[in-house]
Design a protein around this nucleic acid. Sequence first.
DNA 1: ACAAATCTGTTATAATGTTACACTCTCACT
DNA 2: AGTGAGAGTGTAACATTATAACAGATTTGT
Lengths: 157, 157
Amino acid sequence: MEKSEPLAFLDHDHSQCRRTALKCANNQGLRLTKWRQLVLDLLLEDHRSMGAYEILNRLECNGVKPQPPTAYRALDFLVEHGLAHRIEKLNAYVACARPDACQSAGFIICKECNIVAEVECSPSNPELLRVAANVGFDAESTVMEVEGICSNCQNND
Amino acid sequence: MEKSEPLAFLDHDHSQCRRTALKCANNQGLRLTKWRQLVLDLLLEDHRSMGAYEILNRLECNGVKPQPPTAYRALDFLVEHGLAHRIEKLNAYVACARPDACQSAGFIICKECNIVAEVECSPSNPELLRVAANVGFDAESTVMEVEGICSNCQNND
DNA sequence: ACAAATCTGTTATAATGTTACACTCTCACT
DNA sequence: AGTGAGAGTGTAACATTATAACAGATTTGT
């Protein structure tokens, strides 16, 4: 498994992705409460992105369907602790593909199948950061997203 | 005026920005209808980003307050023709700062003052694009946004 | 065992964005 | 000038995404 392979678009052993992520979550001393665990499980099913309400509709615990804040709280927690990422372009979420090695991530988004591949790469565009630094801008977070059609969906037309 | 100066964060003659943008809009043979013109005027007031509903609330023509689709239609048109950009991180819009020379833009977003500086730079992060190309991904659009605090707002704390 | 901090349940509401359809206007062509 | 196609507008309703506020329950550290 190479550093910057967009696994999501390649054949791979996805159960391995899940295991790594879950192990990582458990080793960080985080409080993985009921809802957080359930949301993480949903996101880890595959590399598709899910909207908060799609998650909400699939959340259910002992027959109880939670309200929006429940999903958003769990998502905020997972994002904050690096177990998930928010995809701004889609207003949606994906499980972090490399929680063990996630420094700075860019995303490759297929708008046909909703699969999102995460790529470890240098933070932002170098020119952009340089220009920002030049005017004394204090950069806190970066969005790097590329949207298009994955190889698989190109062939399905 | 240098190619990649983040004018928005520098002292500059903003009326020049407006003139360039308006001239550019008029020279492209576009149909700049009433609402499109009004929305463009609002966005060109400065380099702050504006949400669709903020725009909507300030739109008004002969005492008529339009409905949401009016704002979104005008914004879609302006974005499609390169006169404005959507900022994904904010769900908001800015006037294009260089409609005469806008190939591929990144954005530097101050979360204090909402000023958004546009920087002409190579499309996306090179590593990200390379990885995408490697798996036959057909990239159509790119989001490059850096959020933080501008120099001016750092000093105002 | 207790207090503080964190998490949850719940109601309500805000903010953002879209669909659908009827009507009007503009432009190119005869 | 008339006219038909395409583009733009007005309007109502609705869909989606996200947050505020507050009370109650649970966990944690001491």
